[in-house]
Amino acid sequence: MLPPLKPIPIKERLSVVFVERGEIDVVDGAFVRVDQQGLRVRPVLTHIPIGGVACIMLEPGTRVSHAAAALAARVGTLLVWVGEAGVRLYSAGQPGGARADRLLYQAKLALDEVLRLKVVRKMYAIRFGEEPPARRSVEQLRGIEGARVRRSYQLLAQKFGVKWSGRDYNPENWDVSDLPNRCLSSATAALYGVTEAAVLAAGYAPAVGFIHTGKPLSFVYDVADIYKFETVVPAAFQVAAHPPPNAERAVRLACRDMFRQTKLLDRIIPDIEMILAAGEIPRPAAPADAVAPAIPNPESLGDAGHRS
């Protein structure tokens, strides 16, 4: 009998894999893409090392079996259902899960305005490499960030020689956007998928944000924004400057390479811990009258939020 599967840490994985068309299934215990060319043709199997991938983006034309979804959950790989070219996000499977102690810790920081401001200030300090102005509210810091972001887009567009008229896209109709905006949308989708996988692996809730609120991925957007202009935005502008026939695919490949070059998966979880530690409060302990686990949790190779 094979030993039980155990997740490996996010930092030791590949960042993201896109799968378009075909059926995802489990054959002989392995995660595979079955490309069925016809009833008389033997299926072609493409093996995917799912345990070594942080996030798999499933594009239109992809079907996923129950066995494949269960295997992804056991090894801690996030499955994300996206639109064509990865520019829409429809749904995501949750391979990890927010641990109670970390979820309560995150919620306590988000609900206290003083603690929340400390966390937001730390986010800005990491993102821009300098301390934000003193005595500013979260709303004021958001305004400062907006101005710097618009300027950053302009500078990168000038650097790569891309005509830029501002970030403008319609989530209901991506095709009406110009090429730079389509490239940026595809690039940020890849970043959000990888970031959500890391947030879940760390044991936190994607919806409990500090700058962004009211969205299922509010905390994912908070964390992803820290790395956006270091990773995916330059990659998107570089592709838009010399567009190949399939620009969206080129953007995905460029983002994958950028994630590897910047060692992004090594950094996200430690940065999340450092950001939340800025609140300067201890994690809440379990109530004294709480019932301990009847069966002790086994030691896992994976991160804190992975199932084992």
Score class of each variant (00 low, 15 high):
residue 6 K to C: 13
residue 7 P to E: 00
residue 8 I to Y: 04
residue 11 K to M: 07
residue 19 V to L: 10
residue 36 Q to K: 10
residue 39 L to H: 09
residue 40 R to S: 09
residue 40 R to F: 14
residue 46 T to I: 06
residue 50 I to Q: 11
residue 54 A to W: 10
residue 66 H to G: 14
residue 66 H to K: 13
residue 78 L to P: 15
residue 79 L to T: 13
residue 81 W to S: 12
residue 84 E to M: 14
residue 90 Y to W: 05
residue 91 S to Y: 12
residue 97 G to C: 03
residue 98 A to L: 02
residue 99 R to W: 07
residue 101 D to I: 15
residue 113 E to L: 11
residue 114 V to R: 09
residue 114 V to L: 05
residue 118 K to N: 09
residue 118 K to V: 15
residue 119 V to A: 02
residue 122 K to R: 14
residue 133 P to V: 01
residue 136 R to H: 03
residue 136 R to K: 04
residue 137 S to D: 03
residue 139 E to F: 02
residue 141 L to W: 03
residue 142 R to D: 00
residue 151 R to T: 08
residue 166 G to L: 08
residue 191 L to D: 02
residue 194 V to G: 01
residue 201 A to G: 12
residue 203 G to P: 12
residue 212 H to D: 12
residue 214 G to Y: 02
residue 218 S to Q: 01
residue 227 Y to K: 02
residue 230 E to D: 14
residue 231 T to S: 02
residue 232 V to T: 11
residue 232 V to R: 00
residue 236 A to C: 01
residue 242 H to I: 11
residue 243 P to R: 13
residue 243 P to W: 10
residue 253 L to F: 12
residue 263 K to N: 07
residue 265 L to I: 04
residue 268 I to V: 15
residue 271 D to Y: 01
residue 273 E to I: 04
residue 283 R to S: 04
residue 295 I to M: 04
residue 303 D to Y: 00
